[in-house]
Write a protein that binds this DNA or RNA. Structure first.
Length: 208
DNA sequence: AACCAGGAGACAT
DNA sequence: ATGTCTCATGGT
């Protein structure tokens, strides 16, 4: 009997408990964090967010008004600060002019987000799921490692294929999408980095 | 002291 | 379409 994806989630939740993502005070802070955390450790993002708060820049209007150079210096700890400053500006330019987001369906919103330079599939899905409470599964490096290492998806799988794998095989439930991805990151950080650690992974019993 | 971290875009092939 | 390079700080 081949294990189902939902079995993985149950095992992870039992082992780690609810992960309570996303760590942000507001929806907008979360969206900013989604861009700042691109390919960077979350601890670095926290410093950048603290800087933004200290400078009173953590609002759509403030970010839309500030110049990219000043913003770059403020978010320096998050790494790639020049490109991320531009990406934040691009995102906020859309956000302050986007109007009522609740009138668009998730697929339409995802298309809009992907049109923004600096917002790729993972950032878009993170914003949709964690920022807007939409049903859109998030795939990342950890997801790729877990799925391929457990032979649940081929090495050459694309982002959208892995996303579809989850969305077609688990219940369409926002809190489930939310915590499942967080659990994958949790187990990925501790156990799925190097192959030797698979021996102690709580998901080892699902390995072929 | 290399290596990596909750990616994405530009660019060459 | 598919690979390679760049962006950059901070922790291990």
């Amino acid at each position: 009997m081949k294990p189902k994806l939902l079995d993985y989630y149950k095992a992870l939740k039992k082992r780690f408990g609810p992960q309570k993502w996303w760590p942000a005070e507001t929806s907008f802070e979360m969206m900013v964090g989604a861009i700042l955390t691109q390919n960077v450790a979350w601890a670095n993002v926290e410093r950048a967010i603290l800087n933004l708060k200290a400078m009173n820049l953590l609002s759509p209007e403030a970010l839309d008004g500030i110049d990219a150079e000043t913003l770059a210096m403020t978010i320096k700890p998050a790494g790639f600060f020049r490109v991320k400053a531009k990406r934040l500006k691009n995102f906020v330019a859309w956000y302050v002019r986007a109007g009522d987001l609740t009138t668009r369906d998730t697929a339409a919103l995802r298309e809009e987000l992907l049109e923004i330079n600096g917002v790729g599939p993972e950032t878009a899905d993170s914003i949709l799921l964690y920022g807007l409470g939409r049903l859109s599964f998030v795939v990342d490096q950890y997801t790729y490692r877990v799925l391929t290492r457990h032979h649940l998806a081929p090495e050459e799988s694309t982002y959208d294929e892995m996303k579809e794998l989850f969305e077609s095989q688990i219940p369409k439930d926002v809190p489930l999408y939310n915590d499942f991805h967080a659990q994958i990151v949790r187990v990925g950080k501790e156990f799925c980095r190097a192959k030797p650690r698979c021996e102690t992974c709580p998901l080892k019993r699902y390995l072929p």
